[in-house]
Design a protein around this nucleic acid. Structure first.
Lengths: 233, 233
DNA sequence: CTTGACAGTGAACATTTGTTCTGATATTAT
DNA sequence: ATAATATCAGAACAAATGTTCACTGTCAAG
């Protein structure tokens, strides 16, 4: 077999880009010959050839024997194009706003929102694309904290970073959690492991050594870290 | 003079409604004869007649001698319609999709997209809420890399983290940049400072010492780090 | 080297489609 | 009622447009 192209060739992309911009500008799709001109393809049959490929790949829909019968479904970036959003799509908001409830400092207990924190100050929220979050489950249980000071560097978390937390009271092995160590009055971010009745708190930095805690009662799990975000100038 | 109609006749409205629903369903405008069928007008000339009126009233735009050359500007309620989002509207998009172009590894040059990379494979993108990005400027210049290996821990960046980069060839003091050090064949993320003709590359971890580079030619700036994201299970 | 899938050219053809024309009918102002 | 204007019908025409076909060139696998 000859060349096996998986994705979109430059011509596919150029045609898709033209379909989008033309439709944008004119309000109706281009004819095959207009695509010829723009893409500098001399033959209508070649454009027809590519259009059929794009249709097979689901980027466009074609109608037989219809002038300009091209329906642009998604562009080269895979973004669906639609004039009107359906009600179902509106429910899947692409961005969720997570309340930024305070700072997390090593030396003092971290703020935890009440179990029912449906309302919060809207201007102190963090916008997160839904695609960044693990699941579409229970976004209600999420809150964010700003890291204050350099005390979390062993968790690979910097001053000013934002950690998105999920309210949990129990952690599973391997999850990164925020814990309050009552014996040393300290908040810390560590990977959690429960082994033989002991708790091992493992720093994210592989160069650092873990903390082994004999008495699990000392550890108060405040939440599970879902996302860490660092914004730079 | 005969009837003095200010507003839209039922036929005008019916045609406009058809234009909207047809465009919505098919993705391209109807032909005059298709409008005939729907509106139960037996003559193409009559539809043509009404279309010209609608064009004069600013509801549509027509292109001469172009099949289906109808651009629906506003519907009967005067609401502006747009099939494809304009560039201005795209700026208001709550989520932007940033291409994930590859891995960044200390030991080898990092991938940098070409200067014109407006299109890329859609299946490997990172969704970022616009609110997380510094400005609304030039989202075209952004790309993302996945960190591979533990070699960036001095930049407080972990294995698996995603760094969002902006294409720049010059850095300003205090910015975190990805640089290729040609003398030691290494890619690294550091804060950039140009001082007295020397370049100081400062690790994000305050415990680490900076690298001072006497010859600025050794440093190839690959991009500026805009955002670091760490997703946890 | 041969082969076959892929990519491209150019032209011919058939259909769709916008335009125009003649004429008829309807509505309204005077 | 009459004239002027608006609305409509049907057909013919020309242009735009999609489709198809024969042919050529390219590239990689066997």
């Amino acid at each position: 077999m000859a060349r096996r192209k998986n994705g979109l060739s430059p011509r596919h992309k150029k045609i898709l880009a033209f379909l989008e911009s033309y439709q944008q500008e004119k309000g109706y799709p281009p004819s095959i010959r207009e695509i010829c001109d723009y893409t500098e393809i001399s033959s209508t049959s070649v454009v027809n050839y590519y259009l059929n490929q794009l249709a097979e790949m689901g980027y466009i829909e074609r109608s037989s024997n219809v002038s300009r019968g091209i329906n642009l479904i998604k562009n080269a970036k895979g973004i669906r194009l639609q004039t009107v959003k359906s009600a179902a799509e509106r429910l899947l908001e692409p961005v969720i706003n997570i309340p930024l409830v305070g700072n997390i400092v090593a030396g003092e207990p971290m703020p935890v929102p009440p179990s029912d924190f449906s309302y919060y100050d809207p201007d102190s929220g963090v916008e997160i694309a839904r695609g960044l979050l693990p699941e579409n489950d229970s976004t209600e249980q999420l809150y964010a904290l700003r890291v204050f000071g350099d005390s979390m560097i062993d968790a690979m978390v910097n001053d000013g970073d934002i950690v998105v937390m999920k309210k949990v009271d129990q952690a599973r092995n391997g999850e990164m959690v925020a814990v309050w160590l009552s014996d040393r009055d300290e908040t810390t971010l560590k990977y959690f492991y429960l082994e033989n009745g002991k708790i091992r708190l493992q720093p994210a930095n592989p160069l650092m050594k873990p903390i082994i805690i004999e008495d699990p009662n000392i550890v108060e799990i405040q939440g599970k870290v879902v996302l860490v975000i660092r914004q730079l100038a």
